[in-house]
Amino acid sequence: MVTLFEHQIAKVLSTCFPARYPGGLIVNQTSKDPQMKHVSVAGKVVTLLFSAAFLVACSGSSTKEDEEAAAAAAAAAAAAKAAQEAQAAAAAASASSSAADAERTRLIDAAAAYGNVFYFAYDSSNLTPEAIAALDAHIAVLATNNNNVRLEGHTDERGTREYNLALGERRANSVRDYMVLNGIANYRIEAISYGEERPIGYGSGETNWAQNRRVELVVVN
């Protein structure tokens, strides 16, 4: 009986140690590799040139040499023009892509400068002006990608644990509602409350409490 029980306890304990998400850390996914777009535009050019060469080769079966020559010349001209246009398009795309990348990098840097933690007043789930400024920066980044986010609500140690779980959820929901209002789809956001269980500062006093009343934004993919 003892062995069985020990076995079961071992089983219970083992369920508690699987690898977990890196809570509290922003998992910042790098933006899409800009090289990918260049390759795909270049690919289109190659396809066009190949099509033109194919037309030239096929025209060899024509009976009248002039017509053949004219057709070949027309085809070659068309192919050259197409290639030129494709190259121009590729250059334009490349230019606009690097402009977009630069803009995306700027947005990510701006959001990173604010950090991923939004702070609250005591017993309040209202967003402060500072929190709104930081959130706006994160929303601008999320508008450019498809990342999902986890909003983790926390409270300070004052008040009961279960009530604080509810208050932490209110804070996370208040951030979520602001994000949804500003165009981030609800399904991309998960709001979770840890109540007072995960303090940043363990001691008592306003210095610790202020850094514990927070919502952390965690990018999850």
Partner: peptide, 20 residues
């Protein structure tokens, strides 16, 4: 309540059998 799944969930556990 355990957050082991990454979210809060209610568990019950039998002290005699260890079943959870």
């Amino acid at each position: 309540v355990s957050f082991e799944t990454g979210r809060p969930a209610i568990f019950r556990q039998d002290l005699a059998t260890g079943k959870r």
